[in-house]
Design a protein around this nucleic acid. Structure first.
Lengths: 163, 163
DNA sequence: AAAATTAGTTGTAATTGTCCACCATCCGGA
DNA sequence: TCCGGATGGTGGACAATTACAACTAATTTT
């Protein structure tokens, strides 16, 4: 009598999501939560489990020898201190090394180690495969292409906006 | 000579993202990170800042009086213990109340308080507005509609898949 | 009536994220 | 040349999330 839905919901089916029903950020958030959880499980054995910051860093350093921490941080959408700590652990695990840039001694150059490169090979496979597997279950292939296309441009605009 | 990109990257522009370039989960993750950060700032003054679990819970309880914690947890993609703690804080803040279900004394019924309802009004406005503002900067309107459409169905399938 | 499920709580540990201060270095202008 | 401001990175503190697992209580199944 007093609310829009008195039938105390006990099932998830067709529960109205209030305004969130049409809020893009809500869906992005939930899907990210689930896909990340799924990915973490698949990476559980490897040294980069938990959080995709490590993965992004590892792959970027592998494909861009000498890349700077601040660039990696921007691309992965983390602040410098957070990324710094991620790099600390990668370094401790012997996956990367840090060198001081000869021209600008404030800056660092990040390099992959053989161990890190070997791991990157595995990670690449898993990450690609997992994203495919996960989304194939819930989004038709043709729509996935549309998604990637839209989100890729959105990502670029975000980077530009970040100055 | 040993790497694909020896020009030690110092700029974010056009840095190749390795395989992540075409990995849907990567874009979802980064965009979620940024949109969530932006939202948190806009909610900074309100009692539900930090993390959208609280927001989802508040709005759902407001529009579904008597909804169960486990249902809220599923819809927001958190496990029961995590949602339980979110509800603890909402209860401590006087935004919701918990009652034991008469028919199943294991289960709880969640209800909004007047204070919670008042907050929900504000939160609704902000959340909707923020998502619009944020995405309007980076995705054309017509593509946003496509996105919502695709992601909404993906979300539903995820819910079904979760049993 | 026993066994298996379900709802929710609690504890712990690891990660993250944020904010801020701090140091060293570099750069531009007076 | 020297000074102020900006940049790159580090480190501390603190709050919040997250996952996992163990645990109680209640319900349902067999």
């Amino acid at each position: 009598m007093n609310g829009p839905d008195v039938s105390t919901a006990t099932r998830v089916d067709h529960v109205d999501l209030d305004v969130l029903e049409n809020v893009l950020s809500f869906y992005i958030r939930v899907i990210d939560t689930k896909v990340s959880r799924d990915l973490d499980q698949r990476l559980a054995n490897l040294e980069v489990a938990k959080g995709k910051g490590k993965i992004t860093a590892l792959l970027l350093i592998d494909s861009h020898p000498g890349i700077r921490p601040s660039v990696v941080a921007d691309l992965a959408a983390r602040d410098r201190s957070a990324m710094g700590r991620i790099l600390d652990t990668l370094e401790q695990q012997g996956l990367i090394t840090r060198q001081t840039n000869a021209e600008d001694s404030r800056a660092q150059e990040l390099y992959i180690t053989p161990k890190g490169a070997a791991l990157a090979v595995k990670v690449r496979e898993i990450v690609v495969q997992q994203s495919e597997d996960f989304f194939d279950r819930i989004i038709p292939q043709d729509e996935q292409k549309i998604l990637i296309d839209i989100l890729k441009r959105a990502y670029r605009r975000l980077q530009e906006a970040g100055k």
